[in-house]
Structures are given as C-alpha cells and as structure tokens.
Design a protein around this nucleic acid. Sequence first.
DNA 1: GCCTTCGGTTGTATAGTACAACGGATACTT
DNA 2: AAGTATCCGTTGTACTATACAACCGAAGGC
Lengths: 176, 176
Amino acid sequence: MTGTQPAREAPMTGTQPAREAPMTGTQPPREASVDVIQRELTAFARRARAAAARVHPELPLVSYTLLAHIEEQRGCRATDLAAHYLLDKSTVSRQVAGLEKLGLVERRPAPDDHRVHVLHPTEAGSRILATAQTNRLAAYQERLKDWSAEDLAHFAAYLLRYNAAGTSGLPEGPPR
Amino acid sequence: MTGTQPAREAPMTGTQPAREAPMTGTQPPREASVDVIQRELTAFARRARAAAARVHPELPLVSYTLLAHIEEQRGCRATDLAAHYLLDKSTVSRQVAGLEKLGLVERRPAPDDHRVHVLHPTEAGSRILATAQTNRLAAYQERLKDWSAEDLAHFAAYLLRYNAAGTSGLPEGPPR
DNA sequence: GCCTTCGGTTGTATAGTACAACGGATACTT
DNA sequence: AAGTATCCGTTGTACTATACAACCGAAGGC
C-alpha cells in the first residue's frame, strides 16, 4: 500500500500526475490535495472502530466517545450528543441507557425543565474513561512518536480547523 | 491523567504561526497535541458514517470504501482488503458478496492459485464509484474552500504520514 | 385552554462487524 | 508420496450501531 512515510511535500497519490499546472509557485494542486484528504480521512474512519476495540476493549467505541463528551462538557443532554455526532436521538437514547445500565453515567432531571436529563459520568464512569483515555493516548503517542512537536502541533491545528466546520450547522447535503 | 485532559481546546486553531517551540523546558506541547489529534480524529470517525450517507446515499460507506480500494489497486484479493481496513475476512467476504450481487464487482479466479478471487470493478461499479467520488470530492471541496492550497497540501501530507504507519503491521494491541 | 414544539423512549428494520467452524487448495516436510 | 500445516474464502451465529417512525410527557405560545 502506501509504502512508508511518503515525503510530505508530495501528497498526490492515486492516478493523477497532476502535471498540467506548472503554477510557478510549486503549488500542489488544490484538487489533488483535497482528494488525498478525502481518501485518507475515509481510510482512517474505516479503521477507527477496529483500532478503538484494540485500544480499549472494555468500552465500545461509541460508548467511549459519548462518555468522553459528557465528561468533557461536564454534563450535557442527550440531544447535544446527537447534534454533535450527527446521531439520531434514538441511538443516543439507547447508548446512554446502556451506559447507565453499566453504571457509568447517571441521569439527573434538570430542575428548571422537567423534560431534559442532564447526563453526568459516575465515579466508575470517570475511572474507566480515564484508563481508556490513557490507553488511547498511549497508542497515539506510540504511533506519533517519530513526529516532531512542531508537526504534531500543526497536524492538531489542522484537524481542529477541519472539524470546526460543520459540527453544528449541517452545512451540506439534503435531509436524507 | 484523570479523564479530563489538561489543555483540551488547544489554543491553536486555524492557521497558526508555527513558531519554533523555544524548547527550553517550557512547552513542546507534544502531549497536548497528541491529545487533540486523538480527540479530533475520533470525532471525525464518529461522524464519518452519517456524512458519507449524506454525500452518496446510494453506496453505503463500506461498500464505497472497498470498491474504491479495489479500483485503486486495479484488482485485489479479499484478504488484502481485510488487512488494509483491519476487517475480519468474513466481513469482507459478505461485503464483496453484496457488491457482486449489486453487479458492482466481479470475482475472477486467479489462474495460478485456485484459492484466491481477484476482485475487479465492473463497468457499473466504476461508474457508480465515479459519481460517488465526484459528490464526495465536491463536499470536501466545499468544506475546505477557505483553506489555502498550501494548508491543504500540508494537511494532506500529514494525513498520509499518519495513515502510512500501521496499516499493515498492526503495531499495537493484543489480539483480543 | 388548545396546538405546537421539544426532549426522550420504544418498536422495528437494517448495516456492519467479529468469532468460530468449516471447506477447498496450496505449500512444506519427511 | 503422504501427511500436515497454511492459506483463502464462506457460512453460522450473535451483537453493536444506527435510522426512521410512532409515540409520550412536559413546556410554551396564542
């Protein structure tokens, strides 16, 4: 497959030599870069589940993610989770129910609005989350051990920037 | 680290000046960067399925991915797909069966080894893949429209570099 | 006080996936 | 040559993740 550690200045793979633009500025063609980004992010997404299962087999991927978000937000509603991860509320409902049954989160009725359940990690939830997070982080550290601090910072910034768009507004696509 | 990470919303977003870390004790925020990377990639993975469904509702995410890989490789075996995406061979077998039933791939027995099926996209497969790819690319173009060509190239390079590690060797984790 | 909206649950259906057991084919060893 | 191990793939079974639709109860608007 993609050999090893391709030079970071040559992002175009696939079938395009992208030769048609001398471009004077050594600009790697926008479109080729976008194509690579698309492909690589997709490949990552496809592997994510299996990777997560290896890193923290005790906590399924979705549970981990939702629990992490709950803790991160210091309590949130199911609807927030659904919006953040583009999930149906029924999915979130069941996930949360599962987490509750496992004793990892608790639902507190909101005092002002009797409809909402504010979700909080329990003691056990925080604990298991912490260890999962540790394992996870260790795996990433291992994988990224050859990266310079500068590259890491840049990569992180790019990912943040990428994800920052479209987490709430659903900018694209029909309502399916 | 107990659950909550230290610097979670990293101060750097967008295009950031990439100053050389002064390195003198203070902060190569390596760990913080890795944490952000971990978090953001996970968030992306969680949204990928829904996003894919919006972009090309006709072709399920997995089918799309596998088909794309088949075409990209100009024919490959089921085992290659399994290795590349960390999937069980049974999963791949069923996925491929589905693609075949849809008339999108065909299995040709390899002449030299009678065990393997070499997978190739059919005409229809290439066609539907092309349109899906177009939609997908358009969505990414839209999302990344504010990025400079340089940033795109860098981001693409980082993703390639990230994914290049560990696609084959399974460097981490016990066999569960 | 109705109707609407909102947050959430439950019913039902469908992908996607893993693991285990197996079958057929090839390769390795003696 | 025979026997064994190995590899590629399929099938049986079970479970997770997910969506959509129908629903319920609580707020809110008029």
